[in-house]
Design a protein around this nucleic acid. Structure first.
Lengths: 225, 225
DNA sequence: ACCTGAACACCGTTCAAGT
DNA sequence: ACCTGAACACCGTTCAAGT
């Protein structure tokens, strides 16, 4: 077994013998480049450069850039730790989802890509299996559990995707300013009354509340027919 | 009052006297180009061409491409019709959210952009005011209503964003294939049991169920402290 | 202050040609 | 079948210079 390519993001300098092209080495290289420089640099051209070939060569193994990004995400999904043994099914479910969100938050650009190009690799299926198992353990009817999994994963991915493109601190200031002005505006009384609540809470509290809210809703809402 | 620029996406041919540059004409031109050719074509360079100037000129009025996209979305938010008069608060709330999702689904690329660059214009604030008012009418405590609005809008935006980049029919086939194979795999029994439910339902049913689920959860889940 | 041409440093994807 | 160089048709953003 050769050394895992993830841990040696080979620079143009120290490249050893040229590796044969394959979907696997392309995805592995993509993961390495992403870890080192972010998803923005995971482009067909850059990967081709990294692999000592022209961009056209990659299209033999990968349909397009989106499919490549989806493959990278599936790889990363493999790094989410399994649910811990202790606790209720709710606690374990929330734990897995928070862990998943945390992983995605470490790669917001990837989350953004995943929203459009859903992964469909083995790690993704394992995650769905885990979530379904926990909901089943909680006695949630199969149909709403199935639809609920979509909702839970969508929230995890979207929450992370919101942080793509770098969190401009000035943009946050502006939002606070807009809300403060709206709070003094008599034509929007509910925003005025809720201004504090709209901005309150730590990110952790909000993520935790959101998943509890989703789980509570999923438990109680039957699918049509 | 001059004719609304939204309705005359001036081609390079029929351009009248060159309009003075301003944030307003830039955003209006962006909306026109988006309606005519999609958000992908709403680029700094293309807009500059449309306005008979160089791309650098736009940076006087717009910080970057993301901010421009957010401004376009706020404009579109103005086209979402208000809640109808009849029905319960739940029905009206769901109605507004479905209408909002529908508008976003007509512009999935925009929804994708909105996930990262939140709009903060007047139409966005009006929408939040509407949602808060309906939740208040339903007796939902202020704090969880405020956090809930975020969750509801995130779902609307994310649902639409999932359709960005064109819905490849072949990709859908592949997902069905993956799930069918997973259904025969004894190592993932819950997916096997839920395979049908995972794929069932019309888009309309799913969106409606999702919002009901969110509202049910928001009603019942208190924020910490 | 506002506007601009030109430049810098890139993109995704396709295609005809090679092996 | 697999691989490639080169090309096509673009990007965002910055900067020095003009008005």
């Amino acid at each position: 077994m050769p050394a895992s390519p993830q841990h040696s993001p080979r620079s143009r300098r120290e490249r050893p013998a040229k590796a044969a092209l394959s979907r696997e080495v392309i995805v592995a290289t993509a993961v390495a480049v992403m870890r080192a420089e972010g998803l923005r640099k995971v482009t067909m051209r850059r990967l081709a450069q990294e692999l000592d070939t022209g961009p056209a060569s990659l299209y033999v193994y990968v349909r397009n850039t989106d499919e490549l990004h989806a493959a990278v995400l599936d790889e990363l999904l493999g790094t989410v730790p399994p649910a811990p043994d202790g606790g209720t099914w709710r606690q374990r479910l929330e734990h897995v989802l928070v862990a998943c969100t945390g992983m995605l938050l470490a790669h917001p650009e990837l989350a953004r890509a995943a929203l459009t190009a859903r992964p469909r690799g083995p790690h993704y299926l394992n995650l769905i299996e885990t979530l379904l198992a926990l909901l089943d353990e909680g006695g949630v009817p199969r149909a709403q559990a199935a639809w609920g999994v979509d909702l839970l994963l969508q929230h995890a991915v979207a929450t992370a995707a919101e942080h793509a493109g770098g969190d401009d601190p000035e943009e946050w200031e502006q939002l606070i300013g807009v809300l403060r002005r709206a709070a003094d505006d008599p034509t929007r009384p509910h925003i005025a009354a809720a201004a504090h609540a709209l901005l309150s809470g730590t990110p952790e509290n909000r993520v935790s509340w959101a998943f509890q809210t989703l789980i509570n809703g999923i438990e109680r809402t039957a699918v049509p027919e």
